[in-house]
Design a protein around this nucleic acid. Structure first.
Lengths: 243, 243
DNA sequence: TCCCTTATTGAGCTTGACTCGAAAATGCCG
DNA sequence: CGGCATTTTCGAGTCAAGCTCAATAAGGGA
């Protein structure tokens, strides 16, 4: 029951625990101060280890940041998949709305990490979040969209990556605008309208023509009934006519 | 004709020329190495001045970068306005296409500056490209859009900032995707389709219903005339009837 | 308990942004 | 022109922060 039995467990577990501690500390410091503002000494202090120890786990500050970012994106992917899995409804547009709300909220809350993901690519040409991590995240949308096509809710000739660009691009840009106006202006741009607009846009551009016919049908129906009415009157009149 | 006559001119011109030299050198170094990779010593060397001299023109490296960025955005604004001014056509969608092509090309060519514009905001909380510079640039789109509404090409109930988010957001995201696939994949995503999709999207979502009615109108008009015809026949028949 | 391997450490090295006193250039008057 | 005042330029030196490494500690098997 003493340390002997658990020792073999502790051997590797200790290192993993320490690595998690470093990552957790790093994440906090990076969030608070950004990449350049973050001090390795502070990360070490928060993880309760010596500054040099970090470098036996990570090659450099940039690589540490990279690991934090990849962990961040993996977390996002899991959460997004969870949102899709827990969605009560089955329709494409309801699910798209859930995804849009989740994504927008996340992007606003973690604007720093999103920016750094793409800023790192430039600053440190060797170190950048792998395409696969990002692809994995957007795959949530891709899957939803393809399913929408299979179920006949989305036009068959719609191009996946174009829709993806519209979806993520617009939401990220909106997030930035919302964030920018939040600091100073009192005219806070709310998240709701942004998502609504997104859904409405997908409706009018990617949905299989449906509701447009709906409105026209009213006109057509009324015309049709008028015709029927007229036809009846005509028949009645005709019957009253002599041979 | 000697130096005497031009001296009073040289007094302030000399400083401005030197400032331009610094900015030009800085711009080049920042483009080549990014913000962190750029060395103040190299900027000084390229501008043929001492390193300390830079600091009598700019407070810090960040402020120098900021000036470069603002100059960059001002340049973009002028070019975008020129694109609009020189546009041969007058229709909203043709002009939107010209703007989209220009913007997409620019964003792809200067992805570093675009990223740095927003990365700086985080890294150095005090120093960031002013909202006004960015607003001034997107105002080109705003003006075009409002004019489209005035001319009745765009729905009156369309919300400007929503359309703006879709336009710039989608194009920037597409640019990043294009850039990412350019490095490795051979399946280069071309710029043309992106712009086409953008126009098509604005057509279906923001355009005043026009072409959809066009097709329907044929049906409705023919139905209507048939009704009128029938009605006339009916009247004629009724008149021939005995009381 | 001894020894070997591995992990940890923080004092120093290096690099690069930034400062500052001095010198050079410029301007201004007699 | 020549001397005084102001401005501009300069680069050696300071400082801060990422990173290295030789020394030390910890762990673990015989």
């Amino acid at each position: 029951m003493t340390t002997k039995a658990v020792n073999p467990e502790t051997q590797r577990a200790k290192l993993e625990r320490k690595e998690r501690a470093i990552l957790e500390a790093a994440r906090g410091v990076f969030v608070e101060h950004g990449f350049d503002g973050a001090r390795m000494s502070e990360i070490a202090r928060r993880a309760s280890i010596g500054e040099g120890t970090i470098y036996s786990y990570y090659e450099s500050k940039a690589e540490l940041m990279l690991t934090v970012l990849q962990q961040f994106w993996d977390g996002l992917t899991l959460e997004a998949e969870a949102v899709m899995a827990s969605s009560q409804v089955d329709g494409f547009f309801e699910r798209l709305q859930a995804l849009a709300e989740y994504h927008l909220g996340t992007v606003i809350a973690n604007a720093d990490f999103i920016n750094l993901t793409f800023a790192l690519r430039r600053n440190n040409s060797e170190v950048s979040v792998s395409r696969d991590h990002l692809r994995h995240y957007v795959a949530v949308f891709d899957q939803l969209f393809r399913r929408g096509q299979d179920r006949g809710e989305i036009r068959q000739d719609a191009v996946l990556w174009q829709a993806r660009d519209v979806f993520y691009g617009t939401l990220e840009y909106s997030a930035r605008s919302i964030e920018m106006t939040m600091d100073t202006d009192r005219t806070e741009r709310l998240q709701g309208p942004v998502v609504d607009e997104m859904i409405s846009l997908f409706h009018s551009h990617y949905a299989v023509a449906h509701d447009t016919i709906e409105t026209d049908r009213v006109t057509l129906d009324s015309l049709s009934s008028k015709l029927d009415q007229l036809s009846e009157q005509f028949d009645a009149l005709a019957r009253r006519l002599p041979q």
